[in-house]
Design a protein around this nucleic acid. Structure first.
Length: 301
RNA sequence: CGCGGGGUAGAGCAACCAGGCAGCUCGCAGGGCCCAUAACCCUGAGGUUCUCGGUUCAAAUCCGAGCCCCGCAA
């Protein structure tokens, strides 16, 4: 068994941790996850899924607010870092005997940073993958141990793609780490010239620029689903578009139009999207038909 | 006490500000038209206007309390 400290916070860190446990080759000594933060309108405190899973297996959990002056209580053979969400100082990275391995959901050196899966979709890429690498002090910068590729389906959204990437990450970790520890893998230095970066997303990243083409907007929709979602302004209110697709129509750019029971919005360069499901600020989500029925007068004016 | 929108027929909305028969689009039921139709025309059913209390001759509407949903923010 390989003694391991697992770092993870994100929703999709949970199934990966589960697979690592199930593989039976890792002895998870400790799980490090971000502190529970207030969530939702009521500011309720909710623990991460990773913590819930760790507790289920009686694995000790640490939740430091900052790692700057933090010292790991246990030293392991290896640290596995998977969507932890905080910068980890070098001394913690090197605290494990064989250092720290990160699984990153892109084909490095492309899409370094906090939102690789979303960004890949927004840019309309046809292919992505996961990369196992040895961590150094710069983000997603260390030498590569292994990569796995995955073709992106044209209508796939971020959640669906994440769901397919997570097991791939887990598989590759399980396959790669024993070989790495045994010295059978030579880490490959990344070609830093080719590196691209992606930032952490905010809700504003989901605001639609209607001068973009329907395809670009559709890619934005895929990347931002389910979070933060895409939205626009309509009659001074925020209008979330929950389900859309490119449409073979010509509509004035930025104009919301109902036609034959369907709802369209004009995009750039004479393209348009059809809206199937949407939600107006303060209202519940409804389908296009209900929206047209209720806002017929407003729409035609 | 973080800010804001909302709860009206099966669905989505209007009427509320300025109290006076609760309306529109869709759906549903029945009928008509048509070679035919998810199209069109006619008719009909369907309401505790979220709950409780208050004001009033009269409350969906004004006042107070509560419950629930949602958009921000974090």
């Amino acid at each position: 068994m390989i003694s391991t400290v697992f770092f993870g916070s994100h929703h999709f860190s949970t199934p990966i941790l589960q697979q690592l446990i199930d593989s039976g080759i890792f002895d998870i000594k400790l799980v490090v996850t971000q502190p529970a933060r207030p969530v939702g309108r009521k500011q309720e405190i909710q623990m991460t899924g990773v913590k819930t899973l760790a507790l289920k297996y009686n694995i000790p959990v640490e939740q430091p607010a900052s790692l700057k002056d933090y010292t790991l209580p246990v030293s392991a053979d290896i640290n596995i870092v998977c969507k932890y969400g905080l910068i980890i100082p070098e001394k913690i990275l090197n605290f494990a005997k064989h250092g720290s391995i990160n699984s990153h959901a892109s084909l490095l050196p492309k899409y370094r940073g906090a939102s690789p899966i979303q960004s890949v979709l927004v840019h309309g890429e046809k292919e992505t993958g996961v990369t196992m690498m040895v961590m150094d002090k710069e983000m997603d910068h260390g030498p590569i141990l292994a990569q796995g590729k995955l073709a992106i389906n044209p209508d796939e959204n971020c959640f669906e793609l994440s769901e397919r990437l997570a097991p791939l990450e887990a598989e590759l970790l399980i396959k790669t780490i024993p070989d790495f520890i045994a010295g059978k893998i030579t880490p490959q230095i990344q070609n830093h010239e080719e590196a691209t970066f992606c930032k952490e997303l905010t809700r504003d990243d989901g605001k639609i620029d209607w001068n973009r083409t329907a395809t670009e907007i559709y890619n934005l929709y895929r990347g931002m689903t389910p979070w933060p979602g895409i939205w626009t302004e309509w009659n001074g209110k925020r209008l979330k578009l929950l389900k859309i697709a490119p449409a073979d129509m010509k509509i004035e750019t930025g104009k919301l139009t109902a036609k034959d029971g369907h709802l369209y919005m004009g995009a750039g360069q004479n393209t348009a999207i059809e809206i199937f499901e949407l939600q107006l600020e303060g209202k519940t989500a409804i389908d296009a038909k209900g929206f047209i029925n209720g806002f017929k007068t407003t729409l035609s004016s």
